[in-house]
């Protein structure tokens, strides 16, 4: 297991071991980033978490729906996506929108994109997508994704928008991957990012979302982005940066200076913790346990302060 630590340098920090343990047990975790200083609020009960979410502007993250996946780890990936969307529909406060951090489909087929759009559309929310590597393996090398989600976007599909006082940046790190390498943003996108950030107030919160983690979770399995350091250098002047990723089908968190990293669960199947298996292939868990490993992520922005609260919940019924 690699490190995912919450280190805020304060005596009330939840101990790393305890936090990992609770995360793996699938408990909701809420924490905030206040004025760029991450403060762990510890582990909240459902009611408290719900209260935090209803107070301000919230959005949702889903990831790695892998529509079309039908192997042993989850023969019905479309069904668990449908459950995730139902869970979103049942939230006490309607989120402003949803982000999908990639691997919408398993094999980039038209039918899989259509099924995904139909089911995700059931949430009746705007959805901001970035592609995963599974979304760009059609014969056209990403054409299927671009035709559906590339309109009004740059390059392979990167873009930014503002909502709720937050600047959102969707990045693409799954195209033109090099042999032996990790995820990659590329020079064109980094240049665009520099332009996008130029002149922005350092106090405005920024949320960056991309499929592959923008920090190296586990290089042996390709779980990182080769040129993420250049993107992070551009984000350094900003007081509150939250980076939301998918790809690894499990929750990992890390805080580095003003930057908070967080990866979401999949709605389709879990993958092993780094180094705990011989390969990162789909993890088959005991029958009846699957939904404890799948889930959605809510993010709340509290008005006035640079506060982001991230709450992960599983698809398992409480």
């Amino acid at each position: 297991m690699t490190h995912h630590r919450i280190d805020n340098g304060r005596p009330d920090t939840t101990r790393r071991e305890t936090l990992e343990c609770m995360i793996w047990a699938g408990t909701g975790v809420l924490w905030t980033v206040a004025s760029g200083v991450p403060v762990s609020l510890g582990l909240l009960g459902k009611a408290e978490a719900a209260e935090a979410v209803t107070k301000g502007f919230t959005f949702l993250q889903i990831s790695d729906s892998h529509v079309g996946f039908d192997k042993a780890a989850n023969p019905h990936a479309l069904d668990t996506l449908t459950e995730a969307i139902a869970q979103i529909g049942a939230l006490p406060a309607k989120p402003a929108f949803m982000i999908h951090t990639g691997d919408i489909t398993h094999l980039s087929t038209a039918a899989q994109f259509d099924d995904a759009a139909r089911v995700i559309g059931g949430a009746r929310l705007d959805v901001h997508y970035v592609p995963g590597e599974h979304d760009v393996i059609d014969e056209g090398n990403g054409q299927a994704y671009s035709e559906r989600y590339g309109k009004g976007k740059q390059g392979a599909g990167w873009y930014s928008f503002d909502e709720g006082g937050v600047h959102f940046i969707g990045l693409v790190n799954v195209v033109n991957l090099k042999a032996g390498g990790l995820g990659q943003l590329g020079l064109e996108q980094l240049k665009w990012l520099a332009d996008d950030l130029r002149g922005r107030s350092a106090s405005a919160p920024i949320v960056v979302f991309a499929h592959i983690p923008l920090w190296t979770v586990y290089a042996d399995w390709g779980w990182g982005t080769a040129d993420s350091a250049q993107a992070l250098a551009l984000l350094k002047p900003f007081g509150s940066v939250t980076i939301l990723n998918g790809h690894i089908h499990q929750i990992m968190q890390k805080v580095e200076g003003n930057v908070t990293f967080h990866t979401a669960r999949s709605t389709a199947f879990p993958q092993p913790a780094p180094g705990t298996a011989s390969s990162p292939g789909p993890l088959t868990v005991p029958a009846g346990e699957l939904r404890k490993f799948l889930g959605i992520t809510s993010v709340a922005i509290r008005p006035g302060a640079n506060d982001l609260a991230i709450i992960d919940s599983t698809l398992a019924r409480a």
């Binding site: 599974h134 393996i137 991957l177 042999a179 032996g180 390498g181 042996d220 399995w221 990162p280």
Partner: peptide, 28 residues
């Protein structure tokens, strides 16, 4: 193309030389 479980891809190596290859989904 993307090879799903049990799919295969055949290529005729008609020229001598060294051919490095990788998986563009999992470049490691």
């Amino acid at each position: 193309r993307a090879l799903d479980t049990k799919d295969s891809f055949a290529y005729d190596f008609s020229q001598p030389g060294e051919f490095s290859y990788f998986c563009s989904l999992h470049p490691h």
